[in-house]
Amino acid sequence: MRRAVAPIQPRLLTPEEAAAYLGYKSAAILAQVPVTPIRISTDGQGTNPRYDVRALDAWLDGLSGLMPVGHPDADPQDAAEAEFAAWRMKRSA
């Protein structure tokens, strides 16, 4: 019996794929996106730009007001620790 294999989602997207990921038909929209493409090629010339999905997501998170991954307030444990530290600082003053 064969096991079902989940499709692999690439992390790096071509300009056309990045535009589609953002919901646009034309890669021209990428001129308005402040995410620098990674230039990868097999010949060492760096002629194949690729857009990192995580970089696109972080940019979109910032636009929509969501906290980017890694922001201290994004993790409830980090927020609780910061609140406790502020409380303790007040008490010692």
Results as ranks from 00 to 15, higher is better:
Ser64Leu: 15
Gln9Phe: 09
Gln9Leu: 12
Leu60Ala: 15
Pro37Ser: 05
Ala55Gly: 11
Ser92Thr: 06
Val53Ala: 15
Leu30Gly: 01
Leu56Ala: 02
Ala86Val: 13
Ser64Arg: 06
Pro37Lys: 15
Ala31Cys: 09
Thr14Pro: 00
Leu30Pro: 00
Phe84Val: 10
Ser26Arg: 11
Ala55Trp: 05
Gln9Asn: 13
Met89Cys: 09
Ala18Asn: 13
Asn48Tyr: 05
Ala82Lys: 06
Met89Phe: 14
Ile8Tyr: 13
Pro15Ser: 02
Arg54Asp: 15
Arg88Ser: 12
Glu81Phe: 04
Lys25Cys: 01
Tyr51Gln: 00
Thr14Lys: 01
Pro34Phe: 06
Ile8Asn: 03
Trp87Gly: 15
Asp75Thr: 12
Arg91His: 07
Asp57His: 01
Ala85Pro: 06
Arg3Leu: 03
Val69Asp: 13
Ser26Lys: 12
Ser92Val: 12
Asp43Gly: 09
Phe84Gln: 02
Met1Ser: 10
Thr36Ala: 15
Glu17Asn: 08
His71Asp: 09
Arg50Cys: 05
Asp52Cys: 04
Arg3Gln: 13
Leu22Lys: 13
Glu16Phe: 14
Ala55Val: 06
Gln9Ser: 00
Met1Glu: 15
Ser41Gly: 04
Ala93Ile: 11
Gly70Trp: 03
Ile38Cys: 07
Val35Lys: 01
Met1Cys: 03
Phe84Asn: 01
Pro7Ala: 03
Asp52Gln: 03
Gln77Leu: 10
Asn48Phe: 10
Asp75Met: 07
Arg91Ala: 11
Leu22Ile: 13
Ala86His: 03
Arg50His: 01
Leu60Asn: 06
Val33Asp: 01
Val5Glu: 09
Asn48Ser: 10
Lys25Val: 02
Thr36Leu: 01
Ala82Asp: 15
Arg2Leu: 03
Ile40Val: 08
Gln32Phe: 05
Arg50Ile: 00
Leu60Ser: 11
Arg50Gly: 02
Ala28Gly: 08
Ala86Met: 08
Gln77Asp: 14
Gly70Pro: 06
Ala82Met: 08
Ala80Thr: 06
Ser92Met: 09
Pro68Gln: 05
Leu56Gln: 08
Asp73Phe: 10
Asp52Thr: 07
Pro72Phe: 06
Pro15Leu: 03
Thr14Ser: 00
Thr36Tyr: 13
Glu17Tyr: 04
Ile29Met: 02
Val69Gln: 13
Asp73Gly: 08
Glu17Gly: 00
Ala4Glu: 09
Thr14Asn: 01
Pro76Cys: 08
Gly70Met: 14
Leu30Asp: 03
Arg39Gln: 14
Ala19Phe: 07
Gly44Thr: 06
Ser64Trp: 04
